[in-house]
Design a protein around this nucleic acid. Structure first.
Lengths: 343, 343
DNA sequence: TATTCACACGCAAACGTTTTCGTAAGGTTG
DNA sequence: CAACCTTACGAAAACGTTTGCGTGTGAATA
């Protein structure tokens, strides 16, 4: 098993100095054409590749971006990662992905791990627990050590840094408006508990839309779900015999679960009740009926986030102190779940 | 903006040598208790963290695992990653994830990138293109440089290394058997083109099951789909007026698409036609009807793969030369799509 | 023949660690 | 008082690069 070949070994074999080899490989005019060719031939033969670690140490940068997300098994986040990878690879950056599993501790550990030499900057969507705990010292600390951070989706208002978000409230308003436009008046919302920032914002957008249409908001139309994994019973209970004509769900799972329980309760979607979701994932596309939803354009978010980060990483000192918040447009994706066939 | 603090800086501030600081932080008895405490207090104050890059260079290992998968936006792969992360983190390893996007070139680039210093070993599921091209030089090369590789799911028989797979043929046989058991006799299969190893294996399993039941295999019952993204028309055409009572789809998407077109053609699932899938993902769980399917236990695969790799990484020289192939059991997950309500 | 000048190359420092070995100061022993 | 042993610390090498600068060689010039 041959080991990785280093400059030193090549130098020894060819009986020249390490510097000569290094310079020859870089086609430096300092080195004679003859030697250059010899070195390069040898290097190719032995499949020489400069050791990234040594380079990182020398250059004090790793050319890698750390991405920390709450859950890896989540379609939206993976689309964001896709976007990040796209521009990162274009610009010669590596991407390290860690998931916090929605745990504050794991988020901190991952961040410190990557911060101590493995990454030049971060793209981060914070864990549920972090939002609850409101402890952001790890983020502040990383930034104070000179590593830029870009927050996306689940951001933190109190932390001053670059951010990429969608206008959750506006998206929710668009969704609700769509329901109102097609004639619905009694619209229930399935949302999350308030400490999830995006959940709260979407609830706000829903309320705003209702007000704009002068429809009184009713408490009984709002269900705030804590335990996402066991939402079916809760939703079933909530929807039972409720006098409504539409449901706005703040994520895919709530949407399809709603359709499922409505079916069980003898209601047809979309004819009896329209359902609209949020996030354009696998389920929305392939469910029957396919789901009308708000697309967050995850890949775009990733692209923008990566660009922001790399700009900061490569920018001059001047730009370091400005922070931008990019708002990605959402769009309404109309499908079957809100299509009234006759009315 | 304070910079990251190094041993050198601490040494300077405290007017001792670098070695003293290093030893003090490690609680070496060589250093007086007094100095030790002073150094440790100072280090804590300045939030000293050893620089991983320097450590990697010194120790000639990075304590990170490179994972390369064909697509990041794929539920099965993310579950595998979840498993990998679990054991990696337990054992103090970092995980770098790259996606090849099913491109041979990107797979090679990613691998070389990580191989030149960023990772100690690899967990890899090869790109579609790689399987087609049958060019495995990058894998062989990495291994010959002393970096262990564990292949999973989409493996390559010709490459000698550790592997983690499921018995695709057996899983497919189980699936087909299930259909036969519930009384189906005319079973169609929706599969992929043959160069996708798992597709071919699953097709074989299907055929094996039929033979075991003495049911003649009919060419007209087999559809090999090339373009996964536009499978609906193809499936629709294939299923039209076909005299069948069951469909075995080798992945989720084919399964739900089948159900969709069957619905359009006026057939009910499961009552008229039973459908079984492969891979227990989001769609299978939440679709209506929910899908009977073969679970691949992705997380387990990740766990086993990571264990194999770390064993090799930390094992003595002796174990380096043995290669193991771990076969993860599949299991039948029975849901609605094969439940005959009356028959 | 002495001076100058390319040319082609090597030396050494630096990045941040760890670790082996050397050593000065002070104390103990015979 | 000399020989020795602890104790507590520092110097230096090593990991693999890059790069500014110094330098020996031969040829061209005066």
């Amino acid at each position: 098993m041959k080991q990785k070949v280093t400059l030193k070994q090549i130098a020894k074999e060819l009986d020249v100095s390490i510097s000569t080899v290094s310079k020859a490989l870089k086609d430096s005019v300092e080195i004679s054409l003859d030697t250059r060719q010899k070195v390069k031939a040898f290097a190719k033969l032995y499949n020489y590749k400069p050791n990234n670690i040594a380079l990182s140490l020398k250059n004090r940068k790793t050319k890698t971006i750390g991405v920390i997300i709450p859950e890896i098994v989540h379609h939206f986040f993976t689309t964001v990662i896709g976007g990040v990878e796209k521009v990162a690879n274009e610009k010669g950056y590596n991407v390290i992905i860690c998931s916090s599993n929605n745990s504050f501790d794991k988020e901190v550990i991952n961040m410190e791990m990557l911060a101590s030499g493995s990454a030049d900057g971060f793209i981060l969507s914070v864990a549920k627990e972090t939002q609850l705990k409101k402890d952001y010292h790890h983020i502040e600390e990383t930034m104070s050590q000179g590593m830029p951070v870009v927050l996306f989706d689940r951001i933190i208002d109190e932390v001053v840094c670059d951010k990429v978000i969608i206008d959750d409230a506006k998206g929710a308003q668009t969704a609700t408006n769509h329901l109102l436009t097609i004639g619905c008046k009694k619209i229930a919302i399935l949302t999350t508990v308030d400490y999830i920032s995006v959940g709260k914002l979407r609830t706000n957008g829903y309320l705003r839309a209702l007000r704009a249409y002068d429809i009184p908001e009713k408490e009984e139309y709002v269900l705030k779900i804590e335990d996402i994994d066991n939402c079916e019973n809760e939703i079933s209970e909530f929807l039972k015999n409720k006098d409504i004509d539409a449901v706005f769900a703040v994520n895919e799972l709530f949407a399809v679960t709603a359709i499922k329980v409505l079916n069980q309760q003898g209601k047809k979607v979309p004819n009896d009740i329209a359902v609209i979701g949020f996030t354009d994932g696998i389920l929305s596309k392939h469910f029957i009926p396919s789901l009308t939803t708000i697309s967050q354009h995850g890949e775009d978010m990733g692209i923008r986030a990566a660009k922001l980060l790399i700009d900061k990483l490569e920018g001059d000192e001047a730009s370091t102190e400005e922070y931008r918040t990019v708002i990605i447009d959402t769009s309404l994706v109309q499908r079957q779940s809100t299509k009234k066939t006759n009315k």
